[in-house]
Amino acid sequence: MIGKKLGQRDVVVLDSIPMLIICIALVFGLYLSCITGIASNNAMRYMIQIFLFITLGEMWNLLSGFAGMTSLGQQLYIGLAGYSVAVMTTKFHMGLGAGLAVGVLVSTIVALLLSLILFKMQGMYFSISTWVVAEAFATLFLSWKFVEQGSGMTIRVVPYPRIGEICILSLMICVVAMITVYCLLRTKVGLGLTAMRDDITAASAVGVNVFSHKLIVYLIAAVFTTLAGGIFFINKGIIYPENGFGISWTVSMIFIVTIGGTGTVGGPIVGAVIYVFLQEILARYPGWSNIILGIITILVILFLPTGIMGTLQKKLRFEIFSSKRFSFAKHK
């Protein structure tokens, strides 16, 4: 790869009409397989995981890979989502939809309030603070009687949704999340984000409104992370402070994005599929799973810094869902 630089014409951007048709067909196929029961319950169990992890990965990638806001605290919104659903269904006997809606509302309010504090900080201060906030919420929920403290809450609704329904819901959220990210990056906001990631001072000097750009990204990430988290816990049926607000959510997001390829829209898809199957394989070797995930992550960072998707894109010279409005413009 050294020496030969890519010219604009050398790159095949695969977001033309055929790609769109393939995507729609794929989504529709997945939808049909869920609704007709072609996919077995076991298959759907995997699919739910994959769809939700793609969503979480895309959102973390949007924050970290595109906007340069490396958050270690997105689990905050997952926990809030899980607890909103649990509280609405058990305490107020409402449906799951209401639970999710309340979750989104709560997350939006929390995200808005936090943005006032968090956006004052950059780099590692931001990363640390996001994590501290998530931990503070975990501590709060651990000692809050209303949410049963450390003993956790179960999600009770009648009738409980079938796995097929949950699967379709996950698919929908995943698709909407991806379309949102894709569209956002192709607008002027995307351009501003790239400028911010490269040099935040320069970006604000040329008139990028850093605060509003950050806010848009942070809110979108909060909302979709909430939705994905809510469905996770609907699927699981029970939530504790430790698994709701746990740092392991961030572990998986980082793994998915790093393996797949930071700053590529396609990366988290690859990452999520690998992650879900790897988890399944590693479950046979109890205790070793995180060790192996960690080693893989470190090796990928050292030897494949652009991840699988990034490396493939460079080697094969194509781009799926190009987020760039100007692909590989050659600079002198």
Partner: peptide
């Protein structure tokens, strides 16, 4: 992220 990886490896 490497230090993060180290942390989960060490823990397990």
């Amino acid at each position: 992220l490497v230090t993060f990886g180290l942390s989960i490896i060490l823990q397990d």
